[in-house]
């Protein structure tokens, strides 16, 4: 634990490499497993890749959305505040499954025929919007947690509002926001399974199909659960390392 705290960069690197190895090489050990897992090894690997992509894409977009809406909620411009609050209220107040179905079924009706999007994209959009709303509150809390004195000191030194935000407020807000954002990302890995409802062939969908063919739900779902656990562990290790990396002042204090 001490080593990983002192070398967050290596931990992040290691977790990333581990995740990639796992995704590429997973089919090989799984293929050696007995029926019904072995013959479906390639499907499991493919499903895991879809789940990871879905998480990474909607997770990144969700962080961006969270920042935009989080800053919007703190804006002095009232209509923008209303808009961002409305977004959070709407998303947090409705089920994720409904949001996914809405994007999948309603958006094609709105868009022109030339602009139709894939099932995967529908799922990514709905998940990004969803996690973005939860991220909004994390970002807002992080920014509010930065003491006003930090802003005053920066402004008194002549830094512009933008410089004050980028150099002082943002890095310090991350200390508070990051654990909560990481939590949302871990949830997202699992929430992405709801994409199976709109026929995205991700990990849960693969499991459902394989057990439907083999009539052996227990080994299949145990395998699926293990893969999810490995994925969430990799993601939380990554974000924990990132937290340590950003938490410079406090880290040095502990080492003292």
């Amino acid at each position: 634990m001490k080593w990983s705290r002192q070398n967050p960069g290596w931990v992040m690197f290691g977790a990333m490499i581990g995740l990639l190895f796992f995704l590429w090489g997973m089919a090989i050990p799984l293929a050696a497993a007995p029926d019904p897992i072995g013959p479906a090894a390639k499907q499991f690997a493919e499903g895991a890749r879809v789940t990871v992509w879905l998480t990474l894409i909607s997770g990144s977009a969700g962080v961006l959305l969270g920042f935009i809406a989080g800053l919007g909620k703190l804006s002095s411009f009232l209509p923008l505040r209303w808009l961002c609050s409305f977004y959070v209220w709407l998303i947090r107040g409705t089920p994720l499954l409904l949001q996914i179905l809405f994007v999948w079924l309603a958006v094609p009706q709105i868009l022109p025929d030339s602009l139709q999007i894939s099932d995967f994209a529908c799922a990514a959009i709905a998940l990004a919007l969803n996690v973005g709303a939860y991220n909004t509150e994390c970002v807002r809390a992080g920014i509010l947690a930065v003491p006003q004195g930090q802003v005053e000191a920066a402004r008194a030194l002549g830094l512009s509002p933008l410089q004050t935000f980028l150099d002082i407020v943002l890095p310090q807000s991350m200390r508070v926001a990051l654990p909560a954002l990481a939590n949302n990302l871990a949830s997202l890995v699992k929430d992405s399974s709801l994409a199976y409802a709109i026929s995205v062939v991700e990990l849960t969908m693969v499991g459902y199909r394989v057990q439907a063919e083999s009539y052996q739900p227990i080994p299949v779902f145990l395998t699926i659960a293990s893969i999810y656990l490995i994925l969430t562990t990799a993601f939380t290790t990554l974000t924990a390392a990132l937290e340590t990396q950003l938490d410079v002042g406090r880290k040095r204090q502990e080492n003292n």
Partner: peptide, 29 residues
């Protein structure tokens, strides 16, 4: 604000920056 410096009761050093960086930041920016 470039001509007037201020020292606060509660110091308000930038918590995430090293001492050297605290002092060097404003001239750089």
């Amino acid at each position: 604000r470039r001509e007037v410096g201020m020292v606060f009761q509660s110091f308000n050093l930038f918590a995430h920056l090293s001492i050297l960086r605290n002092v060097a930041l404003a001239p750089m920016r």
